[in-house]
């Protein structure tokens, strides 16, 4: 088991004929992801070559899902059109299958577009949105697996640690830390650093708690908002598996946007200190340095009798 994405999940790529879409689709096929084709309006009927093999392109997501029975889609569409791509995918999955996973990698989508898109997705309860502005989701397999996004596949291995993070490269850091203590990952999810996004920490924690393959969780937050505090409070009452946490941005000055649109301390709220405190209050083992995530995870696993 894993969460939301099985190793052999059938995946579509929206924006597959674009430079970014094609590059990453190729990398996904190389990793072993079961890519079944893509969608670019106006380019239906064409094929795209990935790792030396042709893949079909459809005009619309409903055509693509009808033809392939896809389980998930990944969006590499430029910011002005990305929210619309999310809604198209959500509508098609909802109408045809009643469910589906939509992963949006695009960075820089206008916030009010996302307000609209998230409300649209929430009206279709079988559809899950991950992102935007995120590295995606990966479920490593025995051989290959399902990599849906832009993360470097080769650093992962199948295992029992679930990882959820707002940041891309910090997720990779966390993956490397699990590997340093000979642990692999069940599923790794980047939920993205935008102020308005789809899947949040609590969704991921609940899914990891319910997933028999996952035995411990790494949760990585950053400054801004209070999603981490809410997730910690929720975890205290609902998660029995050990959680290890880190929050980036302890040294960030207030009022300055630190790269991610959501990473900003406003009105003295959303500081790293506040979030670490909430983690500790919830019994989450904290690493003050991401290079120590492995060490802290090992201690937590031992304390739980898992090592």
């Amino acid at each position: 088991m894993s969460i939301w994405i099985e190793e052999d999940a059938k995946v579509l790529v929206q924006g597959i004929t674009g430079k970014q879409g094609m590059f990453h689709a190729d990398k996904m096929v190389e990793y072993g992801t079961n890519i079944v084709g893509g969608c670019t309006p106006g380019k239906g009927g064409q094929t795209v070559e990935l790792q030396g093999k042709p893949y079909p392109v459809w005009h619309s997501m409903s055509e693509a899902i009808e033809a392939t029975d896809a389980d998930a889609t990944v969006i590499y569409v430029p910011p002005p059109f990305a929210a619309e791509a999310i809604m198209e995918a959500a509508d098609a999955f909802d109408t045809i299958k009643g469910e589906g996973v939509v992963v949006c990698i695009t960075e820089g989508i206008p916030t009010l577009d996302m307000v609209k898109a998230v409300a649209y997705v929430e009206n279709r309860p079988g559809v899950r949105l991950i992102g935007p502005n995120c590295p995606g989701i990966i479920t490593p397999g025995e051989k290959g697996g399902a990599k849906i996004g832009i993360m470097p596949g080769h650093i992962h291995a199948k295992g029992r640690i679930g990882i959820v993070s707002k940041s891309g490269t910090l997720t990779y850091e966390a993956v490397a830390q699990t590997m340093s203590i000979d642990e692999g990952q069940s599923t790794c999810i980047g939920i993205g650093g935008d102020p308005v996004n789809g899947t949040g920490f609590i969704d991921c924690l609940a899914a990891f708690e319910a997933d028999p393959q996952t035995e411990a969780i790494i949760m990585i937050g950053e400054i801004g908002g209070n999603a981490e505090q809410e997730a910690a409070a929720w975890a205290a009452g609902n998660v029995t598996k050990p959680i290890v946490g880190f929050v980036a941005g302890a040294t960030a000055p207030p009022g300055k946007r630190m790269g991610h649109a959501g990473a900003i301390i406003s009105g003295g709220k959303g500081t790293a200190e506040e979030k670490f405190e909430a983690f500790r209050a919830a019994g989450i083992a904290c690493a003050m340095d991401p290079s120590e995530l492995g060490k802290v995870l090992l201690e937590s696993l031992k304390a739980a009798g898992l090592r």
């Binding site: 707002k166 960030a252 790269g259």
Partner: peptide
């Protein structure tokens, strides 16, 4: 640094 989260974490660890 590459990545906003890692860039913040790098600052934090320097301070640490």
């Amino acid at each position: 640094v590459n990545g906003a989260g890692l860039a913040m974490a790098t600052m934090d660890v320097i301070k640490l």
